[in-house]
Design a binder for these strands. Structure first.
Lengths: 329, 329
DNA sequence: TTGTAAGCGTTATCAC
DNA sequence: GTGATAACGCTTACAA
């Protein structure tokens, strides 16, 4: 009914209710108004199926209640979970989330930022790799897992602490010669600290250790080659491995078992992320669990309050260790 | 530089370039304009860092280049992958995607739709469960995996065909008494046809079969109970199982192995979805693979062209079978 | 308290 | 081709 194809406006509601335009506006902005008027307006609005036009409102108020999330992809449980929690957290604050996927391409990341500037969102949460990400000073921005600049807040898990815990667990569980293995992007990020934490613990405590870093662009083969090179006389040179991600840990474990190395009997392995199998909910391996939901909620909180308060430029959230069958607990 | 805190407008650009406001507008809308003017405008815009205000444009043009995606969650690889592909497909068409997560709550689904109507998006893609989803006639809507109404396009995989293929494969691989197991929502959806396809094939070909359906709200325990009830004298009553999802297949396989039933030696199992392990990229089990990317791209295509053309109310996309180690290939 | 009117930044319609 | 001017739907002083 009513003129289909054209949404009713405040003017229509005003006419229908027999009140002035401004009165209708006030009703929809919770500004006090005579009770009889309020009722007339609400009734008329319901009859007409009126909804506030958020574009007109956004134009006027220069506020859109929209936040953009920039992510490499959703094709990885960590990113997917992060997006899920960020979306829910934003909705809880009555914000909506627009998602931009970059496939880790720095060029795409820049394009996203440009698009977003034009799309007039209220803020951006980004997990990016571009070395020189230029983001408008006036656009609230929170970075995840990557420190971009002194005036841009960054939220991440306590990667350093996680590395330390991993080293500590491995040695506590009897490892005499643990190894750190890393497969990741070649652009520096917070996650690099996982190795730093591990190395630092070992050095402080006089633990003999190894550490190898590989670039994911080259694939996982170099890691396998390295493992084979460490495999002599029927045993590995190391009795414990801390992998920079659960995925890498899975791949390493797989390869070790192919080589005839038993996990966790001969070599204990700890990953990082705390991902769970979709079917059983179990961890893929013993792991340092990231507080994904907290990271999400913290990022949202900081973003939404970036105007009012001043936050530390960097927030690192506590991780926990969880046994997952690849250590001798 | 420039008056920070206030984005430059077309008026500013016009003044800076020494041309009329309308001319600036034309330049940014690719409407022919004198070459010298175009250059002056572009130069001025660059100097000022001008960007078109999409809210003002949206208000005027009643077009927002925004599409909403309604999904139960991202905490399942199928949904995450779907969202990923839909987002990429939309961006390719210069649309942006706002994501709404409902946690499968019909009430939340309705709230989403209401929000979206107010947010003036150009269209909606939804994977929902609400029984009586009321969606505005004027708002282009494409449903995924659920037929909502005659005038609402629905895109899904060929669930019926997938069920048929599963039955066919199992029998071709030597099963004499296959079983269909389903664990899912109690609201009817396209995915129910997986069982229908399986049953139909068996009946037509005179295959002795079983079929049991369970509601996911009750958890997976009832399925386990059923399996145990089927387990007598050291063997299962069935020699093949088609599960309605890969997840269920994994759980069933796990339980069977606990009972001492060997997979695929004693019982062959086929799942549905075509999910892959994040570490190795392998299928979790032998499975009917959904063409997720095609579903995504088709939904986007139909949505963006829903105004111009008339599409069939229902599109089902071809699935394929992939061995995954739980069948005797 | 209620009504009026002036924009917010853009696009589209016309005279020039 | 160019350049005033009137909408688009809403908010907010300000006047009544």
């Amino acid at each position: 009914m009513s003129k289909t194809g054209k949404a009713p406006t405040m003017k229509d509601v005003a006419r229908e209710a027999g009140v002035a335009l401004g009165t209708v506006s006030k009703v929809f902005n919770d500004i006090p108004v005579g009770e009889s008027y309020r009722l007339k307006v609400e009734e008329a609005a319901r009859r007409l199926g009126y909804r506030v036009n958020s574009y007109a409102r956004g134009l006027r108020a220069d506020k859109t209640y929209t936040v953009a999330l920039i992510l490499p992809s959703l094709d990885h449980p960590f990113f997917a979970l992060l997006a899920d929690h960020i979306c829910v957290a934003l909705n809880k604050h009555n914000y909506r989330m627009v998602l931009d996927i970059t496939k880790s391409d720095p060029h795409a990341e820049m394009r996203c930022i440009r698009m977003i500037e034009q799309d007039k969102v209220d803020g951006v949460i980004g997990l990016t790799y571009a070395e020189d990400l230029q983001v408008d000073e006036n656009l609230p921005y929170v970075s995840i897992d990557r420190f971009i600049g002194a005036n841009i807040p960054c939220v991440s898990s306590d990667n350093f602490g996680g590395g330390r815990i991993a080293a500590e667990r491995l040695t506590a569980l009897g490892c005499r010669r643990p190894l750190f293995l890393r497969l990741g992007s070649d652009v520096p990020g917070e996650t690099d600290k996982r190795g730093a934490g591990f190395v630092t613990y070992c050095q402080i405590n006089g633990v003999d250790f190894g550490a190898q870093r590989f670039i994911d662009r080259h694939g996982v083969e170099p890691v396998y080659d390295f493992l084979e090179a460490c495999y002599r006389d029927g045993k590995l040179d190391y009795d414990g491995i801390f992998c920079s991600t659960d995925l890498l840990a899975c791949q390493v474990i797989r390869r070790l078992r192919q080589l005839g190395v038993r996990v966790p009997e001969d070599v204990q392995v700890i990953g990082f992320d705390g991902l769970r199998r979709p079917d059983t909910g179990e961890y893929y391996c013993s792991t340092i669990v990231q507080p994904i939901q907290q990271v999400a909620e913290t990022a949202v909180y900081i973003l939404l309050n970036s105007a009012s308060d001043q936050f530390p430029g960097f927030m690192s959230l506590p991780v926990t260790y969880a046994p997952g069958g690849t250590t001798r607990e």
